[in-house]
């Protein structure tokens, strides 16, 4: 563990990790197996919250907070908003899965293969990420992110950040144009 971290060292970290991971996996499975869309959405929210907790364990409280505000508090509410208006009786009669097993298995296998490669490679001692990720301890996490984004001498990711926000703006305008027949 990082000795610089303020306060006491965290307790029972692996158990929390396994617990949260289990919640996420169970939530993820429930999302695709529930026929009732609202139940799926609730399972997805659980998954997202568990993910936020994982971020906290990684000493990224800012990301965790943003995860809760944006995904669990914002986007999922809009999801629920739409889902609630769908007639459930009808939804339960619809066929649940598309017959795309082949593509699905291929994608899952590729992702699994990637994870296994990374895991075996790191255990063998190979350095996959040569730069080394800058780790920001708990107390300065938010300020650290701010420095990365908006440092006075041109933050490393400022351009990418601005491009992303521009993309979002385009998406918002596009949504308005598509939804409104007459502006």
């Amino acid at each position: 563990m990082n000795p610089q971290i303020a306060g006491n060292p965290p307790v029972a970290t692996p158990y929390f990790f396994y617990g949260l991971a289990a919640i996420m996996i169970i939530g993820g499975i429930l999302v695709i197996t529930r026929k009732n869309a609202v139940h799926s959405a609730l399972a997805l929210i659980t998954t997202l919250l568990a993910q936020a907790a994982l971020y906290l364990m990684l000493y990224a409280p800012f990301v965790a907070g943003v995860q809760i505000i944006l995904y669990a508090g914002g986007i999922m509410v809009l999801f629920l908003f739409v889902i609630m208006l769908i007639s459930i009786e009808r939804a339960e009669k619809e066929r649940q899965f598309n017959k795309q097993w082949l593509v699905g298995i291929a994608a899952a296998a590729a992702l699994g293969g990637l994870f296994i490669t990374v895991y075996t490679a790191t255990t063998k001692g190979r350095v996959l990420f040569p730069e080394g990720r800058t780790s920001y301890v708990d107390m300065q996490n938010t300020q650290g992110i701010a420095n990365l984004l908006f440092d006075q001498h041109g933050g490393t990711y400022m351009f990418a950040f601005e491009i992303a926000s521009l993309l979002l703006l385009v998406a918002i305008i596009g949504a308005v144009v598509m939804a409104k027949k007459r502006i």
């Binding site: 208006l85 769908i86 007639s87 009808r90 939804a91 619809e94």
Partner: peptide, 8 residues
Amino acid sequence: PDKTFLDA
């Protein structure tokens, strides 16, 4: 009755 699936 409601005509379509998404007739909300």
